[in-house]
Design a protein around this nucleic acid. Structure first.
Lengths: 345, 345
DNA sequence: CCAAGGACCGTTAGCGGTAACATAGCGCAT
DNA sequence: ATGCGCTATGTTACCGCTAACGGTCCTTGG
């Protein structure tokens, strides 16, 4: 009695119920409900009314099995909590909304094992496409994607070989660009503050590009500070205080993301540090939050909305040549110097 | 040739392929893969190996149809972009992760029409439960929920009649509590700053509770300011500036959420306003972001994680009495006075 | 007037699994 | 030896819907 929900008096409705209520065959009802094939206006109306009156809700499980077609798109992302992926999702939804395709989101928490599990679960629903963040996957996950027989779009990153289609920016180049901008402004003693996440490959690639550009100028990072978990804004504050008390001579701090960058900026403002004169700051992502700070943090836009839109357009074949496989789109991130990098000298 | 993905040389695998590869019946393969029923150790191993070697991924569409059971839980929320619902999702996932149930998220953007559409889509997958934010639904949506024949949990709000189960806080009382705290601290000329969202019923209820408590003390809101869209932090800044330039005599600002509250706080700090002496501030939600500000904003925790966990526990029957229907859980929000309300006089 | 071609609707045969029930083989107490 | 109970596996009949095809009218041009 505890778990019994609606004992069985009213089974859940099927096409048959609607067909009996409207006096036509199940097939005709199916045609009406899917708006496919020829049905006369009068029977269409009759069927629609019956369906609505009964409160019939189609069974996509059965429909999907019969038609071998499912209007789902699997979207696999590392996290929902950092503001960046929700915006990608928004882009995806915008495009998918008018196509009958529906995104289903899976979250991996930056864990390859979880990615593999989530992917397996998703593929078992036989979606008509997959959008997955990043190019790095376990061997098993890669095999599943390769053999799924559906279009795959890897997003956010183009630095590496793609399984099928890919949309994103080069984080290596993004790091490089930022470093060059910083160097051009005359900063020389540079520290890095980032997250302790071995599986955040995009952050890693940005840092690699960054240090490569420093190396090309005969420089290296002077110091690093990492954090793990907790409020990013607060951590940014604390880390900044820590690194500056250890190395007060640093003249630039490069943050792996805008949240900790914003925290650092708040600390500098509160501490009365001359930004960008004595100390320059830069983050990454172009999050909306930054607009609310008194001083605008230098950042780089990862084109999140655009990435989501482009990925969805590939899956729906809305590309230039109508292809939905093997497409490669590299977007160019815009560097916003904000007010925390001084003018080039 | 454009859209053709994997021409058809290798069809997608079925149980039959695994059964042939391992020399047992499809049924036995099914038993092995679901870990159900008696299968000898040796055949189990053989089947597992065959499935792995082939790269077989079960078809849950077919399985769901046959078993009349689908391990999905529909989760319907208004938004993903404001940090509050992701935390609810985290709570839900934490509990569901070990149960084989999988959340599927739908976003309504605070639109009743979209809620109805999303709900219809979700129900057509025949999930084993629904978690939906809020108690307000269109008639059609309410009918669908009532007739779905599965456990329904409405979350985040308990101020009103529930369809089935409900988990949340009373926003009316939350607003009331905040008002009483503010009044006890001696503030008297109070302004409100909020979002222009007619369908955010919880914000509305908080404000109703708030004004009711003011009225009980013979007071009313002195002024209001609304915004719509854009960066909440920035809007909070701008609105605060606007309302204060219009009514410099106000001694308290009540914000409908923490993001705009934080923006307001930043403005006040930058403008050198004495907080909480001359002006008190309070928001709502207890978002993590606030930890990173120099001055902690007064707020009220909406128990988001706990709400998510409790909702999931209801669906999985992990309640005190094992019920998964008709449960009502009212949580008590914790008021955190932070540093923006002065001590009661 | 008739064949051809729509418009409209029904029938049949699955889709890929699983519930429920059979069946086969074996050990063991009687 | 017999029969019972258990384990391990196979068989059958769907689940609710749709693709594919077939049939019946009715229109229409020659």
């Amino acid at each position: 009695m505890a778990n019994d929900h609606r004992p069985d008096t009213r089974r859940t409705l099927t096409l048959r119920d609607v067909s009996e209520a409207s006096g036509v065959s199940e097939m005709t009802v199916s045609r009406v409900l899917r708006n496919r094939g020829d049905v006369s206006r009068s029977t269409r109306d009759r069927v629609m009314k019956a369906a609505k009156d009964l409160g019939y809700v189609p069974n996509k499980i059965a429909g999907g099995l019969a038609s071998q077609r499912v209007n789902l798109v699997a979207v696999i992302i590392p996290s929902l909590s950092n503001m960046v992926f929700p915006e990608v999702l928004t882009g995806i939804s915008q495009v998918l909304d008018d196509t009958g395709l529906q995104p289903v989101v899976g979250v991996t928490n930056y864990s390859p094992e979880r990615e593999e599990r989530v992917l397996y679960e998703m593929l078992s629903w036989r979606p008509s496409g997959v959008i997955v963040a990043g190019l790095e996957h376990s061997d098993a996950a890669r095999a599943m994607l390769t053999n799924a027989g559906i279009p795959i779009v890897e997003i956010m990153d183009v630095d590496g070989p793609a399984i099928d289609s890919v949309v994103g920016i080069s984080h290596h180049r993004a790091g490089q660009m930022m470093a060059q901008t910083i160097l051009a402004a005359g900063y020389r003693r540079i520290g890095f503050l980032g997250t302790q996440m071995p599986h955040d490959h995009r952050a890693r690639k940005r840092l690699e590009g960054f240090t490569a550009a420093l190396a090309a100028a005969g420089l290296a990072l002077e110091d690093r500070e990492y954090y793990d978990g907790g409020s990013a804004l607060l951590k940014g504050r604390e880390m900044t205080q820590a690194i500056l008390s250890r190395r007060p001579d640093l003249d630039f701090l490069y943050y792996s993301n805008d949240m900790i960058g914003a925290g650092g900026l708040l600390h500098c403002l509160d501490a009365g540090i001359d930004v960008p004169g004595r100390l320059g700051l830069a983050g990454f992502n172009g999050v909306e939050l930054l607009d609310g700070l008194r001083v605008r943090l230098a950042t780089m836009d990862a084109c999140r909305l655009e990435v989501g839109r482009a990925a969805a357009e590939i899956l729906t074949g809305k590309t230039a040549d109508g292809r939905s496989s093997g497409v490669r789109i590299e977007l160019t991130p815009r560097l916003d110097p904000g007010q925390t990098i001084r003018a080039p000298r």
